[in-house]
Design a protein around this nucleic acid. Structure first.
Lengths: 196, 196, 196, 196
DNA sequence: AATGAATGAGCCTTCATTCAT
DNA sequence: AATGAATGAAGGCTCATTCAT
């Protein structure tokens, strides 16, 4: 009985399965078979919908990044002042949902994948750039352009750094401590005390 | 051509080849064949010396981490005051040699590998712990324990964060800018303008 | 050419090919490639249906043993008296079909395999036990329990002994002579001329 | 320090190691490396002494068979009458030394090997022939030629059959029971009670 | 006499991908 | 829409054998 309009749910199921599987295995060395099985279909169908493995992986990556982007946008929509908006970005970046082990592992795996796949690289650049420009936009209203730029870079690095560390080390600070550190950093940078 | 005492040079050649190959391909999905070919020997010989692929990979990882550790120790040996030593750690962490594209790629790949291989995980933890305790040791002499702890975590994250970003994004700040940011961060943290 | 329901014929083809190949080569050192080629398919498909080499070999062994068992049962169904049934077992054991060189070689190879594979050992034990209990059941109705037991053991050993010798030596007696010897043995044992 | 006159002990060590290794692993799939290691030398040396693997295996087989032959000869030297000599052959064939698990396994493995290697086949034929003619020689003095021939075949088969069964099945009768069965068989055959 | 070094060939197994139904 | 069938290609690993010392 040929079902109709199955394309969307099937694609979703495959993307979800990919993220779970990549996360569970902790790397990109997942097989189409594993993904398809978890998604409850045959490998042939997976290929039917995505053409090849790389495209499945890219779709999953795109999904993770767009989820992240949506979350930031959502948080930003709620607040007004630059300082609030800055904090909103940081909060969103540290949202609990990103810290689910599977997501973290998938994220890290995609980082590596990006070195081999130009398209993955492009996607990651888009994410990095957007985070950077989001931060920069708010920071520019809070301090001079040079410092704003430097802070945006530092905050981005902190976010990625904590993220990656969280993926591997039990001794990494937990989410609340991280937010404290980020707030403390911005706070001190914005407090005008010229370095002697 | 001497036919004895080949073990050491062969192992070295394989380790170097592994790092280059992992770096060049940007991931752990290198074959023993590729490594062996680059090291100028047969795959059988590679297996003869290391037993299996994982052990080759781990040896390469161990080499990278110990190189990193040696560099830090070397820099630390040159200076005296806590502040100098702190800067020495940061400088060493940002040493140009770590930023050769192949090394960066290998480093990143090892991070992923660590999620699958307990031994890789252990190695990475050792590195992270050592960096952290090195930083902490100096920071404790410069500020109160709570802030020292927080700073050590932040600096570790910044280092890893910049490192990972450097691996992927052209727009990542260059080494000198990174050092500026790290210095600026520590400087501001250590300048007593306490938040109430 | 129908593309569904291929599993059964494929498995059969692989089992047959295994027996032929093991028989032709005279040992278990057959490769999956050889088996698959003879069965007219790729090695990948062989693995698809059986999982791994050992399972292919075990399936072949199981097939040989169950063929043997079926033959005995078939012969037994035809006759009535204990003596007839005893002879039926001996006849079936010496059936021409078991003496095809390939089957003999495969049989022998399985005996060796049994020393390494617990499952193979189990299968062979089941065969030996069944033969023994079949013999014993009839013999008990023809003589006292002690002698029945001893005869069952002797006949089993004779069957296996002739079988193995047939596999290797041209000078081994042929099937009819073997049957004569078996009959003569039972006959004399059952004729009451007790040793004092 | 080049040792001299090492050839003999080295060869012996390799032969012993082969038998142990084949017996321990229960098959001919032993590697030259395993044999050499157990014999306490390098694989290169093993090749130096025997040329190739097959020759090592054959030497081991030859050793087992000649040990068997020597034992029979030894036993035969001790007794006089045909009946005593017949029993001596049977006793020697069932000697405890043959039933050490390693020897049994090696024996069985050689049987299979014989299907692939003409030389192994030849060796085994020699053994079988010698056993047969030994038996025949004595039996001819105890009964008519036709029965003697038949008995020789039956006894050979019984010996091999019990041997092979012993290798695999716990339920096989032990050595003493086997000897009882063999004696009982000959006794009844030689007792003149014409079959009706 | 003895061995570490070295390799070519081969085997089992996996996997992405295609095809016919 | 969906899948079982099927495979080519490749990868990790083993091993008998050779060579130079």
């Amino acid at each position: 009985m040929p079902k109709i309009g199955m394309e969307e749910p099937r694609r979703r199921a495959l993307i979800d399965a990919t993220i779970h599987e990549v996360g569970a295995r902790g790397g990109m060395d997942v097989t189409v078979g594993q993904i398809a099985r978890r998604a409850g279909m045959s490998t042939a169908l997976a290929h039917h919908y995505f053409g090849n493995k790389e495209r499945i992986l890219l779709a999953a990556m795109r999904h993770i990044l767009s989820t992240f982007g949506a979350l930031v946008r959502e948080e930003l929509a709620r607040v007004e002042t630059p300082m609030q908006r800055l904090n909103a970005i940081l909060d969103a970046s540290m949202d609990r949902r990103h810290f689910e082990p599977e997501t973290v592992a998938a994220w890290l795996a995609f980082y590596v994948q990006a070195q081999q796949s130009p398209e993955a690289r492009r996607l990651l650049r888009v994410y990095a750039l957007r985070l950077h420009s989001n931060l920069l936009h708010e920071l520019k209203q809070l301090t001079d352009p040079a410092r704003a730029a430097r802070m945006a870079q530092a905050l981005s690095a902190l976010i990625d750094g904590f993220y990656i560390r969280h993926a591997l080390q039990d001794q990494a600070p937990d989410r609340d401590d991280i937010i404290d550190i980020l707030r403390d950093y911005t706070c001190r940078q914005l407090t005008e005390t010229g370095q002697p």
